[in-house]
Simulated assay, not measured.
Amino acid sequence: MKPFCFADGQIINTENATIHPMDLGLIRGYGIFDFFRSVNYKPLFLEHYLDRFIASAEKTFLPLPYSRVELKQIIQELTDKNDMEQGGFRMVLSGGLSENHFSPAEGKLFIFAESLLFPSEEKYSKGIKLLGLDYVRPIADIKTTNYALSVWDSMRWKKEGAEDVLYHHKGLISESSRSNFFIVKDGVLITPEKDILLGITRKHVLQLAEKVEIRDVTWEEALQADEAFISSTTKILLPVTKIDDHTIGNGKPGPVTLDILNKFKVLEKENSL
Rank of each mutant, 00 (worst) to 15 (best):
S154A: 15
T145K: 01
T14C: 12
L237G: 04
I19K: 02
S174R: 01
K158H: 12
K159C: 02
D195S: 04
N271F: 04
L24V: 09
I54G: 08
V151C: 14
L44Y: 14
Q76H: 15
E77D: 14
L71A: 07
N180L: 05
Y41M: 12
Q207S: 12
L130D: 08
N82C: 11
I142F: 09
S150Q: 06
V188I: 14
S179N: 11
P255M: 08
L267I: 03
H169R: 10
S272D: 09
E160V: 07
R215C: 11
E47C: 00
C5L: 04
Y30D: 06
E99D: 05
N262P: 05
S38P: 11
N180G: 04
P239F: 07
L267M: 09
K81I: 13
K194S: 07
A162E: 09
G199E: 00
V165R: 07
E210R: 08
L166D: 06
F110E: 02
G161P: 03
Y124G: 06
R37V: 12
L44V: 10
I139M: 10
G132R: 04
H169T: 00
D226F: 05
E270F: 11
G132V: 00
L197V: 00
I54F: 04
F89I: 11
E175L: 10
A17R: 05
G254C: 10
T234K: 11
K203F: 13
I111E: 01
D186V: 00
S179G: 07
H204P: 02
G29L: 13
R178Y: 12
S176A: 15
L198W: 01
I248Y: 04
S115G: 15
T79N: 15
K81P: 10
R28N: 14
N100I: 06
F4I: 07
